[in-house]
Design a protein around this nucleic acid. Sequence first.
DNA 1: ACCGACACTTAGGAACTCTGAC
DNA 2: GTCAGAGTTCCTAAGTGTCGGT
Length: 843
Amino acid sequence: MRVLQQQSSSQQSAVSTSADDNGDRCGASFSASSSDSDDGVPLSARITNNRSATNGKSSLRRGNDDSGSDSDSMPLSKLSVDPRAKRANDSSDSESDQPLSNKVKAPKKTTNGSIATTTAVKRAKREIVSPKDAKKAKMAPTLKAAPATAAIDKKPRIKKDTATPAANAASRRGSAAPLASKIANRKPSIKAESSVTAPSQDGSEDSDNEEFKWWLENKDNDGPKWKSLEHFGVLFPPEYEPHRIPLSYKGKPFKMHSEVEEVATFFAALVGTDHGNNKVFQDNFFSDFKELCDKHHAKHPIKEFKSCDFSSIRAHLDGQSAKRKAMTKDEKETSKKEKMLIDEKYGFCMLDGRREKVGNFRIEPPALFRGRGAHPKTGMLKKRVLPEQVTINIGENAKIPDPPPGHKWGNVIHDTTVTWLAMWKENINGNTKYVFLAAGSSLKGQSDMKKFDKARNLVRCIDGIRSQYTKDLRSDIMAERQRATALYLIDRFALRAGNEKSDDEADTVGCCSLRCEHVTLEAPNIVNFDFLGKDSIRYERTTEVDKQVWKNLRLFQKAPKTKNDMLFDRLTPTTLNKHLQTLMPGLTAKVFRTFNASFVFQNQLANTPANGTEAEKILAYNRANREVAVLCNHQRTVSKGFQGQMTKIEDKLLAVRYQRKLLKSYLLEVAPDLKKKHPEIAKSEPGLTAKWIKSFLLVTCETDCDKARKKFERDNEKLKEAGEAAIPESKLAAQIAEINEREKSIKNGTYTPELPVSKNTHTDKILEKISKLTERIANIEVDKIEKDENKTTALSTSKINYIDPRISVTWCKKYNVPLEKIFNKALREKFTWALDVDSTWSF
DNA sequence: ACCGACACTTAGGAACTCTGAC
DNA sequence: GTCAGAGTTCCTAAGTGTCGGT
């Protein structure tokens, strides 16, 4: 169980503002005082990492009021009072005595049984900023980066043209140099570790400049995303190669058509895994499998899943995997080269004349859909994608990539307002899959920087926003009160917005879609949240909240609502975001997560020991990172070997401590005066019990025996190869006998341990050795702490997506820690735009 | 106001690769 | 050279939020 310390609001308001900020960013003025009335709320919260609970799905959906008497805008006091809703003992809270809507609409039925899903209720009414705000935002001075505003976010949506053969031919005619050589001959335009401070350049076709620092540009974010785009399209997975191994059905072999066999093989690969054991997965798989059997076999015996035996196919797969593992060095080299050739071809494109990395250029191969959590469609067959289903997006003058022989592209378009290179639809949920540029590309970098700048804008609007919602917590209008309460939860606990989901998806929720059953209240102000969030990760937390928030939550849960009803029945992410846009241009619910993550991180970094070792500084960094990961509920499953690994580290630690103990005892014996100058040598070693030492020494005997045997065999092998006489067995026997003697003396307590240094070593040398061991011990201890603390928490997600990289860069500069210690190569590439900030930058 | 389509970000786990101890 | 474990990359599911049409 971990304790999360969140920043207090007073901390949050004490933020510095740097000179390159745009001043004019908050779109609303606040009449309420700037002091946050939440100050009194202790924000410690207990988090447990239990995963994957099952929650009942709501039978009742959000009640949309059509009735005039129960409208959102009507003051609560005017609503009719349901006697069941009346609370007897809360006279101080007159507003909360008002009833909620008595009507809750019946669930929306999914009208469509087909695979192409329709989202049941997706409220999306777009609203942005007033023209005035948009204008204001555009006029704001831009030094380093343009402010992120809704106005800037807005992009014109153009109709996609269908590529006519004539247009395609024209495109081909327009292509100048062969693309392969053009792309291959250029290095990526974005370099992570650049020492070059080249002047910025415009985004036009200036191919020779390798260091394109787009972040130094004053680019208009409103325009098209690119001017020219050339690429090789997508790579299709190889055709299925049948193995002809029959499925065993009721003990009898069933020879399958290759299409049927392919699907059986998909399942065979998952036998014994969580998916393979999941009943829904099995049922969905079997239903699709049987359909294929019907299609390809006029007569077949397949009737029930439980009579299918996939073990022969599985054995074949295991054999293949073993073969792959046993590949020779040359074979591995060849396969690596083949992969590199493919990566070189499809992995890069030319964007506005610059070579940029493409992300996922591979078309997803057919497979069984692995939905997460209790996904009703998990196990269904995800079909093979054909070129005819793929749309290519490419520059008008670029050569259109060749589709695989005998095929043609579904469509070819030239849409400069989007960033994808190719797109197709998958058959399970009807979702669109895109091929985008890689994370380190200029396009991704630009939107990343925009995202963090927007979150940074919130730093200076947050006090006003908090005052506003704190005031609204007592609003007479139910919709407003719900909105304020939800906003409090989003702000304080980093909850996601919580869009409504359809019945053919896993039952997961976010803030707006919370149901009454997900929140348990305990007087006077304790709340327990327990629900499945994104990816069916359980969010379980008990915490104190603002007293008024607690009262509101109680009000929102009141009868006639039942546990399956929406907690916030007058609120949707759309209405919430619409409101947020009035408080700050471009503000949406998700910005709070980015803002709070970065803000908490920056505050936590203040705990870095300025005079500590590098390892200690990095530990402080990772701890700050962990606070954020806990706040955002980024979890991971505990690895299988975790406990064993911890025991190993513990033993390693004790073994080093034992070495140090021996040296210290020796020093005390030969130079007792030393302890005046070096009192640490008189200190005992924690954790070193006589029992542990004995068992450690005995294990050492065992391993020494093994080592001696292995060395003996190895040496003889070498001698044999050289044609020389072998070492006699007696030599090994003598060694073993010596070890056995040692073992005996350990057992009967007469053993005198050997010193890790020779007897006549100078005391200075021994002190030096002790200090090295001390350093080693400190490092192992840090490792141990980190390992334990990271057991169920994934740090990478927040590092990649939520923490402004400029905070990390600044920290490295301030504490003199090399950036490579905290950002790996991929992160350094992703965040090139952030590397130039100086050590005084603050979020 | 509502809906589906769309475009993009965020997410955890599997697969693969590197590294250091033996 | 082998192996385990750490670190990294790949894969693709699952979110959020916007847009145009009705």
